[in-house]
Design a protein around this nucleic acid. Structure first.
Length: 418
DNA sequence: CGATTTTGACCAGCGC
DNA sequence: GCGCTGGTCAAAATCG
């Protein structure tokens, strides 16, 4: 004779209890704890088919098994969710730090702008040939934002492009200078074109001299008349390197996924035109600007004064940026914090961020304690984030939304409410 | 069938 | 003026 009792249960999330073990008590008083086999199949069912009571019992056990499996899955999901929440908390704190640095940079930028205005006034007093000066020193724009927005008063050709400087129009010359400034991005990628969030239409292909790989020409098709173009070509020396050269500034709102690249190239072009750094051929700069692609430890920028158009090259081909992968290249998480975003149009605004970045570098001693750890943290986060394009896009959108609200003090709160 | 790509032709700038 | 080169155009082909 043996008695059977259920003495261990699993509480389900909906309040139900499911037996995990049974205890078999034998006549001699000994007892054996039998663990419930969650994954047993129905082989034994055949042995009980002739016993209606046993059949009902087995049926109940099968239901228990199914429910137990379901609840175990739920428990696993819960654990995963908790893990993701913890990771999310870490990212939030990281973003808070990034945002703090953005505010700091923004203040520096404003200070820089004021300084530039003072220089402008002094120069205009010292020289009467201000037309030449302003053409030679493009940074003298008091508000670079104005150079990026499409001005209906500026002559454009039939394609909506800015006319070349030869038309003698000063405004047109300035705009053409902006458009002619080029930002070249070198990155390792197996894909034929890097994914930068914009829509492009190929309008030509050429075999350039000295490179067996053809150069492809693309224009932005996200808006009619958008003057932005890009050239894509593999490096002749190392064909795993994809060289993408951007020219012009978008005249339309950009999706969040495109903001990273647009703001980075915009910032680089801004620096290039600003003359905030000396423009010597093959002069390398390692820029420090928190949270920016431009600040990546192994990123090298190269300015070329001998090229037909002023060109700045952002080199992402070092080991740290080795992005070789079968899937299309995805632009590293970065840079939204490096641009001002027009509250109305969502157009990235070049604001001389890199000059500010340099000043940030000069002031780096203020941050020397946290800079290094932040940089390491940022590196780790970048590697983690870039491994998941979808998450990267979502994170970029989140950051963009924060910074898009300006630098008010509620940014952290805005994010934490998510 | 509309959008996109391909590809030869055309144009402008530059050096000789 | 001529040839070379880079960049763009536009008709044809291709794709989804």
């Amino acid at each position: 004779m043996e008695a059977r009792c259920e003495n261990m249960v699993l509480n389900s999330f909906d309040g139900h209890k499911f037996p995990l073990t049974t205890t078999t008590i034998h006549e001699n008083g000994s007892s054996i704890i039998n663990e419930m086999d969650f994954f047993s199949n129905s082989n034994n069912d055949n042995n009980n088919n002739n016993n209606p009571l046993m059949s009902i019992h087995v049926k109940e056990e099968k239901e228990y098994d199914q429910q137990l499996q379901l609840n175990l899955n739920l428990a696993i999901l819960r654990e995963d969710l908790a893990k993701m929440k913890r990771e999310n908390e870490g990212l939030r704190s990281m973003l808070a730090q990034v945002n703090e640095k953005y505010v700091f940079l923004h203040r520096i930028i404003q200070e820089k702008m004021v300084t530039r205005e003072t220089i402008d006034e002094m120069k205009s007093i010292m020289t009467k040939d201000d037309t030449k000066q302003s053409l030679l020193v493009p940074l003298e724009f008091k508000n670079l934002n104005q150079t990026i927005k499409i001005d209906p008063n500026v002559d454009t050709n039939k394609n909506g492009e800015f006319d070349s400087p030869k038309d003698g129009d000063r405004g047109g010359a300035v705009e053409a200078t902006i458009r002619r400034a080029r930002v070249s991005v070198r990155a390792r990628s197996q894909a034929s074109m890097i994914t930068d969030g914009c829509q492009w239409r190929k309008y030509g292909q050429k075999l350039a001299k000295g490179n067996p790989c053809p150069r492809a020409y693309y224009r932005c098709t996200m808006a009619v008349g958008c003057p932005v173009r890009k050239q894509v070509q593999r490096c002749a020396e190392d064909q795993t390197i994809l060289i993408t050269t951007y020219e012009g500034t978008h005249n339309h709102p950009l999706p969040q996924s495109a903001m990273a690249m647009a703001s980075t190239t915009s910032a680089a072009a801004s620096m290039l035109l600003s003359g905030s750094i000396s423009s010597s051929d093959h002069h390398h700069h390692n820029l420090i600007s928190p949270g920016s692609m431009l600040s990546s430890p192994n990123l090298t920028t190269t300015l070329s004064a001998t090229a037909p158009f002023p060109t700045i090259t952002l080199d992402l081909t070092s080991d740290h940026h080795d992005l070789r992968q079968p899937s299309p290249f995805h632009f590293p998480f970065s840079t939204n914090m490096n641009c001002n975003i027009d509250q109305n149009s969502n157009i990235p605004m070049a604001t001389g961020q890199l000059a500010a970045a340099q000043q940030y570098n000069n002031n780096a001693t203020k941050f020397s304690g946290v800079q290094r750890s932040d940089q390491q943290l940022m590196d780790a986060a970048t590697a983690a984030v870039t491994s998941d394009p979808q998450f990267m896009a979502a994170l970029a959108a989140a950051i963009g939304s924060i910074i898009g609200h300006g630098n008010d003090n509620n940014n952290d709160n805005n994010f934490n409410r998510n």
